[in-house]
């Protein structure tokens, strides 16, 4: 595979048929198109720092590769972002599906309901072969009826990724691929690739690849639980004396 990177040189696409072909396959990136892309709608992640790192946010459709171990708040992050985008759909009565393909368990309805997601719009493709899973993800992504497809798979081939990316673009939806494989899969033909790790209340995000802009140092998001952990307290000022006074009053 040839990797071509043009940083500064301006060129005319139709002048070079090979380049043309590469560009059509989106294997080349040009700095001018970076500007054009910026003008295209980006989806804010709700975190200023992350938005900055992503050059204004997520692309408006496509495939995102997320490398993380399960339980780092990965789903939460994406659901929160995609949910905002779905508000518009819901207002127009246009219910789109959330699709879970081969998740590592069962999506928790109570969690989704707390996020104000109508679980009737949830689709789970479960217990299938890899081939079926990918076919389903592709069908969903391109159908135009889904807001996002969450796909759990260890490894995908270039071709598979390519198919999914095109499907998502075609259906104007997201295909978010979670993997806990530590193996680096470089240069996948997709919109965005990130890695996530968690330490206590902080999530560290490393952007491995994005269509526009550069990979950066990892950024940190603070995402604590809502909960309080202890209700015991030791107050110095004790008001028992007041109650005893009261007792004497009431006896009078």
């Amino acid at each position: 595979m040839i990797i071509l990177c043009f940083y500064t040189v301006q060129f005319e696409l139709h002048m070079n048929p090979i380049l043309h072909e590469l560009a059509r396959k989106q294997w080349v990136w040009s700095a001018t198109s970076a500007k054009q892309q910026k003008q295209k709608k980006c989806i804010s992640t709700g975190f200023t720092e992350l938005d900055k790192a992503l050059n204004a946010g997520f692309p408006n459709a496509g495939m995102i590769h997320v490398q993380t171990i399960t339980g780092c708040g990965e789903l939460d992050l994406f659901i929160n972002i995609l949910k905002q985008q779905n508000v518009q759909n819901e207002q127009s009565g246009n219910n789109k599906f959330w699709v879970f393909v081969s998740p590592p368990g069962v999506p928790n309805a109570e969690y989704l309901l707390a996020q104000h997601i109508d679980i009737n719009n949830l689709l789970v493709i479960h217990k299938t072969t890899t081939e079926e899973a990918l076919w389903s993800a592709e069908q969903c992504a391109k159908s135009g009826a889904c807001i996002g497809v969450f796909l759990w798979q260890k490894r995908l081939s270039q071709l598979q990724v390519r198919k999914l990316e095109l499907s998502a673009q075609h259906g104007q939806s997201y295909c978010i691929w979670f993997t806990d494989s530590k193996v680096k899969q470089a240069n996948l033909p997709l919109s965005l690739s990130i890695s996530m790790t968690r330490h206590k209340n902080d999530i560290a995000i490393q952007i491995n690849k994005q269509r526009v802009g550069w990979t950066q140092q990892s950024i940190t998001l603070h995402r604590p639980f809502n909960c309080h952990t202890s209700i015991k307290r030791n107050k110095q000022a004790h008001r028992a004396a007041k109650i005893i006074n009261l007792t004497q009053q009431s006896l009078n």
Partner: peptide, 26 residues
């Protein structure tokens, strides 16, 4: 879009079998 959704489900069910296309109940 609703029709797109329903025809998607028809397609999925035909290919995968009805039991593998699931929803969530609470």
């Amino acid at each position: 879009s609703q029709i797109a959704g329903l025809s998607l489900i028809s397609r999925l069910m035909s290919k995968l079998g009805e039991s593998k296309v699931q929803g969530l109940s609470y």
